[in-house]
Design a protein around this nucleic acid. Structure first.
Lengths: 257, 257
DNA sequence: CCAAAAGTGTTAGGGGTACACCCATGT
DNA sequence: ACATGGGTGTACCCCTAACACTTTTGG
């Protein structure tokens, strides 16, 4: 939880708008320059980074709330969004930070505010196309920006642990989720897809074997060659064949990775 | 949510004791007579079955709440308990049922009761040793009893879907969780372990290959033979070697199943 | 002796891994 | 021509699946 205040509740009666005691935090993954990145917000009050989060409207599905919060920071709708864990430790403490954050937008919190009670937060991870995202900071944030997963800045609260947990879940579900489909543009070279798998798995894969494996399942369609201007063979571009891809995911690709 | 009312809240001020709007439901798996079973409660008010559930104390860790709720129904502490999903649809509707349930213990709910608002519920699954459980119904229930996973009675709310979801999660995590260790007594024949894997996976496994595979990793220790009195060769009993077993699980047994 | 289940062995096939090799491209 | 990276081929190894055979037990 942290930054999704639309409609902006006044601190005293936010519980008229939102489910009390529950928040959502989104771990939004993008892929750029052969690196896996996460979209983060930087707090105005103390320059620390945090996950884009928010609350659930009184009569809103949990998934819909996560999608609304994601849309507010990225502008994107209809993206792949997956719940992965609930963080419910009683010692999750955001009180001091919340006070400071809300002061920057001129809101004073009293000790009995609905925001000052203990919260549990539901973690969602999203896979989005980096190029389509227009990061939008909220009122309490300096910036909204991509940060490399392998070199994260220091994070507020337990947000560092939440990202680690998201990555681990992503790894476990790798063969059941449309990883590349969401992270890549429509057409892409195999090398990019391989780089994504390598970034998520955290280890190198053999190029030759990767190509054979991924092509063997018939989920990709070969398009034209792509001339980058580099001094080597131009790679073919590929696109996912939606019909076979989603059918294949139902049974998992575990035989392939 | 449903049946864990200790300390019993009065309907008006339960939110003084509990986190509002969040509940827990436990899917408790046991193994008996070659069958996977789930521990359920039968409501006094309408004879329908449901999952044992409850609420989270104001300053209680989520995991601790799930453990407390499990202990109230089974008498067991220190068991394997794993969060698997949050059910957060806005249309999860328990209002009518809650009214009826609480009437059976003489509590009248008003429309503005904390219990009458929308709840999201966190699903946990537990693996327990069937023989150690002493099922304990709560005040609103006729009985607390084991039901076979493959032949469940009709369930209240979305509890049927929750059990299905728990099973699916269990399948996915099969190679990372100490399945047999929690479901079986200290010593057991390989056949029992195989039956558990078959029940969870929903398909038959080859006996010969299963034995070779499971033994190849050195997580089992052979004990004495067990004479059942049946007219065939007496099987060896085995016990988990805790040292190697838990080390092996960290990396997963995926090469083995 | 027989039936049933445990224990052990064997074989064929497939897929993963680790390479080697050739091809296309722009400098 | 050459360096770079793409595309393709291959051989070895291990695992899996399927099934056969032997051993033990009580009827």
């Amino acid at each position: 939880m942290s930054s999704e205040f639309y409609p902006l509740p006044d601190a005293a009666n936010g519980s008229d708008y939102f489910l009390p005691a529950v928040s959502i935090d989104n771990v939004i993954f993008g892929f750029h320059q052969h690196e896996l990145k996460v979209l983060l917000l930087q707090a105005r009050s103390n320059q620390r980074w945090m996950l884009p989060g928010g609350f659930i409207l009184r009569e809103e599905d949990l998934d819909a709330a996560a999608a609304r919060i994601l849309k507010a920071r990225t502008g994107l709708g209809n993206v792949f969004l997956q719940q992965f864990y609930v963080f419910g430790s009683a010692s999750r403490n955001r009180k001091q930070h919340l006070k400071e954050v809300l002061q920057t937008i001129g809101v004073e919190l009293t000790a009995d505010s609905w925001l000052m009670q203990r919260f549990i937060t539901v973690g969602y991870y999203a896979l989005v196309n980096y190029e389509q995202v227009i990061p939008q900071p909220d009122e309490t944030s300096l910036t909204c920006a991509w940060q490399p997963v392998n070199n994260l800045p220091e994070l507020l609260f337990d947000h560092g642990a939440i990202i680690g947990n998201a990555l681990q879940s992503l790894r476990l579900q790798l063969n059941y989720q449309p990883i590349g489909y969401n992270l890549l543009p429509k057409e892409f070279p195999l090398k990019s897809l391989q780089a994504i798998y390598e970034a998520i798995l955290g280890r190198r894969l053999d190029r030759s074997n990767f190509n054979r494996k991924i092509l063997s399942y018939g989920i990709l369609e070969r398009k034209d060659k792509h001339f980058t201007g580099a001094a080597h063979k131009a790679p073919f571009l590929y696109a996912f064949r939606e019909d076979t891809y989603f059918k294949a995911l139902e049974n998992g690709l575990e035989k392939y990775f």
